[in-house]
């Protein structure tokens, strides 16, 4: 291959990715840079600071690190991501994928039931769950548990974080299952056959063959689900608006509340920049440290 041809190829490839780069620059990189700039000002949506925002240096970041509500929100987000995305969706998604590899009578129905939450718009899903988890005699779940003699509960008040974790697991299993199914299908049947001929039991097959060969898929899933769960907003906002008393104020809702309820765009942007840095760090951890090809 001549050097001239190689140069032409390089330029052609650059030209081909140009539209993507332009879109990325316009809708991702520029807003992110603008958020960094805004985070260094006292810009507000109302009042004098909206008319004449001032450069305040790192004041917003200093305030942020001493803001107990920010750290509380970050802690809530951590538990939410850990239990809903990393544990709940992953385990149940993998279990569903393994279950649906087998042939049984109701397989298409089970498949549809697991995938259905993904087809429902998140606000609709939230409204549905709000009705399900409503307190007193009005809640569907309270009516169900009443059959077993359980007193009506305030599900979204007494167990708010647990409830939004359950709702998010319900919504995310389908995606996890799809990814796990594709990972499982890439494992050769011959390996399973050989293991069975060597007398391996199902547990050994899972531990020695399935799990190790599924690691790239698992970490790809963890990368995508962790980052997208940190950024979750609509489902929880429509269900609880971050309440009661901030118990479900995930970091996305905290940013929204600071920017659009307290009208402090500068401070909200500082929180957003810190969260972006966290997400980038987590992404790099998955991609680099675990050497996963994405």
């Amino acid at each position: 291959m001549s050097a001239k041809f190689e140069r032409a190829e390089i330029w052609r490839n650059r030209f081909l990715i140009l539209p993507s780069m332009l879109l990325l620059a316009t809708f991702v990189i520029y807003p992110a840079c603008f958020a960094v700039y805004t985070s260094l000002t006292n810009e507000s949506l109302t009042g004098p600071a909206a008319l004449n925002p001032r450069f305040v240096g790192l004041d917003n970041y200093t305030k942020l690190f001493t803001d107990g509500n920010f750290w509380r929100s970050l802690a809530i987000t951590f538990w939410f991501v850990l239990f809903s995305a990393i544990i709940g969706q992953l385990v149940l998604g993998l279990a569903s994928a393994m279950l649906l590899r087998r042939r049984f009578a109701l397989r298409p129905l089970v498949n549809a039931v697991i995938l259905m939450p993904n087809a429902v718009p998140e606000v609709v899903a939230a409204m549905m769950w709000a009705s399900m988890l409503a307190s007193g005699e009005y809640g569907t779940l309270n009516n169900i548990v009443a059959w077993f003699g359980v007193e009506p509960q305030r599900w979204l008040t007494s167990f708010p974080l647990t409830m939004i974790i359950v709702v998010n697991i319900w919504r995310g299993i389908g995606f996890a299952m799809i990814l796990m199914t594709s990972g499982l299908s890439s494992i050769s049947e011959e390996l399973y056959e050989a293991a069975r001929m060597d007398g391996a039991n199902p547990r050994q097959v899972f531990r020695r063959i399935t799990l190790p060969l599924l690691v790239p898929t698992l970490f790809l899933y963890l990368l995508v689900s962790t980052v997208s769960t940190i950024a979750i907003f609509g489902l929880v906002f429509a269900l609880t608006r971050g309440g009661p008393a901030g118990a479900t104020e995930l970091i996305g809702i905290y940013i929204y509340n600071q920017s659009f309820n307290a009208y402090q765009l500068g401070y909200g942007s500082a929180v957003a920049v810190v969260v972006l840095t966290f997400s980038l760090f987590i992404g790099m951890l998955y991609v680099r440290a675990l050497k996963v090809d994405v």
């Binding site: 709000a130 409503a134 307190s135 009005y138 009661p244």
Partner: peptide, 12 residues
Amino acid sequence: IDPLLGPEPWVI
């Protein structure tokens, strides 16, 4: 108290 903590507290 319960309805006041819900997403549309005025409705009930």
